[in-house]
Simulated scan of single mutants.
Amino acid sequence: MAKTEAYKLNEPVPLSFVRALLVQANNAKLDVSALLRQAGFPWNPLQESAEPQVFISVEQYSRLCMALFQALNDESGGAVGDCKTPWGSTRLLLFSLLHCANLGTAMERAIEFNASCRERRGEVRVHELVTDSSARTVSLRYFSAADPQHPPQQSGVLCGMAMWMRVCGWMTGQYIDIVSATCVGPEPGSLVPLRHFFHCPVDFDSDCNAVTFSARHLDAPLLRTEADVEDFLRVAPYHVVISPIASEVSITTRIRGLLGDDLGGDLPSFEELTGMLNMSARTLRRRLEKEGTSYQRIKDNARRDIAISLLSRARMTVSDVAERVGFSDPSAFHRSFKKWTGQSPGEYR
């Protein structure tokens, strides 16, 4: 297994993700018992009388995903509602990208691959990479005129695009921060899936589904080999859907690890950080610029992600959350959170 990434095979998978897969299998009228046997589950998580054990391994979850996708003959798991990704397509796609010079070339080739190899219900009107006039950000845009008999859930299409960006991050060993997103459809009744993938503002009723990120990532070289692809595919569903792989190559990931989860105290200065990473200030700035980020942005994103996690799960007041992520002034936290997510902390909760 490559040394550039950490596969968390012993991480417990939340039961809610497993149940969501089984509900999807039920809705598709598949044999749930057969899928569970194929994935090595000794019990059915949908049954109230199931064993109290709730630990599900990364490999079990990934096997269940793959069993479902194979039964559906759709490796996107229905996320991209206007087309199917036939079983085996992802493996062939990744192999076809390995020798691309950089991520930009790989993403353009993936657009070509998808146009020729996916089974579609409607005409694709937009599928392109567009760099903004300042050349600082780039948007992956997608919109299809789907069969009106089978209209896609546009928020699901957007989540599918976020999953693809996680694959792109794995290919380059970089953390790709999506800074904004747009969705063709109206705001869905539940924002939980979108919040899982997007820690940034999402604009609805747009003319195109799009994810926007730093254009510097397009120049990143691809780091993977055929052996890496085989290792990745074994647990890809977990890392694409639930938790992206933490690459040891990415300087962003290393700094996030140094910052930890409690940002209430003083964070290291840039000079202190260079000592912790054993590199010069010039080298660190160059590495950060290469990944399309900065130390300040990494700190802001860490505060954002921890605040989102605490607001979603912990029984803490907004003021307590603000203090936990380093804001002594709750009003400043409100302003920052609104800038990060497009919602106030209260609205988000």
Rank of each mutant, 00 (worst) to 15 (best):
E5M: 14
N10K: 11
F17W: 12
V18P: 04
L35A: 07
L35E: 05
V54S: 11
F55C: 07
E59M: 02
R63L: 13
L72C: 09
S76E: 07
P86W: 04
L94V: 10
F95E: 12
S96M: 06
A101P: 04
N102K: 05
N102Y: 02
L103Q: 03
A106L: 06
H127W: 14
R136T: 15
T137A: 04
F143A: 05
H150F: 13
S155Y: 11
V157P: 02
L158G: 04
W164A: 15
V167W: 03
C168A: 13
D177M: 05
V184G: 02
S190F: 03
V192L: 08
P193A: 03
F198I: 09
F204E: 02
D205S: 11
A215P: 08
A236T: 00
A236V: 00
I251L: 15
T253Q: 15
I255T: 10
D262R: 09
G265E: 08
S269H: 13
M279Q: 15
Q296N: 13
N301W: 01
S309D: 10
R313N: 12
A314F: 00
R315C: 00
S319E: 12
A322L: 03
E323P: 00
E323L: 06
G326N: 04
A332V: 05
F333Q: 04
S336V: 00
S336K: 06
K339A: 14
T341R: 10
